[in-house]
Design a protein around this nucleic acid. Structure first.
Lengths: 141, 141
DNA sequence: TCCTAGATTGGAATTATTCTTGATATTGAA
DNA sequence: TTCAATATCAAGAATAATTCCAATCTAGGA
């Protein structure tokens, strides 16, 4: 599965990712995602990146995002049929979509849990990727 | 959450679903889904339905599918950015996407499990919908 | 039967994403 | 350093799933 890079702060860039040429565009796309972890769409990423790279095109943002996903530095997240969103948390995790605010929260697995503990997997299934999405509301507390 | 209708066979039509007029088109769309539970796309449903209703339009298939989803008789399932697929299993369940064959298998929860047992939910979260998708391979056994 | 709300149709419109092409930049080898 | 090969970028065209729209059509109630 994906490599697990932990403890990357908003400023730590993935200087050394084998096979990935760190161009200014990719760096800035990555920086923007790390800087505000609110699961932006490609369009939103484009707007943010343009502050520093005013000439970057949306196509390039799509290319950069795809490249970063392919190299396991970020994750692409889909809700229903909405635009894809992007997330710098590459740990195994799910998402909670708050219907009221539209906000998306990362959901971590409790430590030590195992898919097969709660799902009836087909015999011999080798899981390569998991996507867990919850939709609901946060009770006014 | 959705009403839970169990034990519907391939021929049992939802004659009585409050607020839903059972037109021939809706009936046939539903029948087609129940008859072959392989998670077809709207296009595939359209092809199948046309055998009995040659004049039905794709727009109508989309309308029927949406209506049936809204009434909790079927579920809409999304994988990545692919076309939506439709599934007559309205029980809470997930999906396993076999990368080799492209087949999609329903995954049931083990009895008695509870989301909060394995996920760190935000405090006060009220879950309205769950989507669990696994991608992987079936080991050649 | 007549009326009306809801359903259907075909085609146009929308929209996120991908593709294409030519220009530009980077790398590694000589 | 220079060159050739390769990768990246930008702009706009193309694609494809889905939705929208306007014009009929239909079923069921008065």
């Amino acid at each position: 599965m994906n490599s697990r890079l932990h403890d990357r702060s908003a400023n730590s860039l993935p200087e050394a990712c084998p096979g990935l040429r760190m161009t200014p565009q990719r760096q800035e796309v990555y920086r923007v995602l790390m800087g505000r972890r609110d699961h932006p769409t490609a369009n939103e990423v484009h707007s943010r990146v343009k502050k520093r790279l005013p000439n970057i095109s949306l196509a390039t943002v799509y290319n950069c995002l795809e490249t970063l996903v392919d190299h396991g530095l970020i994750r692409q997240v889909n809700f229903e049929r909405e635009s894809s969103r992007y997330c710098p948390n590459v740990n195994e995790h799910g998402h909670f979509h708050d219907a009221a605010s539209g906000a998306i929260h990362d959901i971590e697995f409790k430590p030590g849990v195992n898919l097969a503990d709660f799902l009836d997997l087909p015999p011999g299934a080798v899981i390569e990727d998991i996507e867990i999405t919850l939709r609901g509301k946060l009770a006014a507390s």
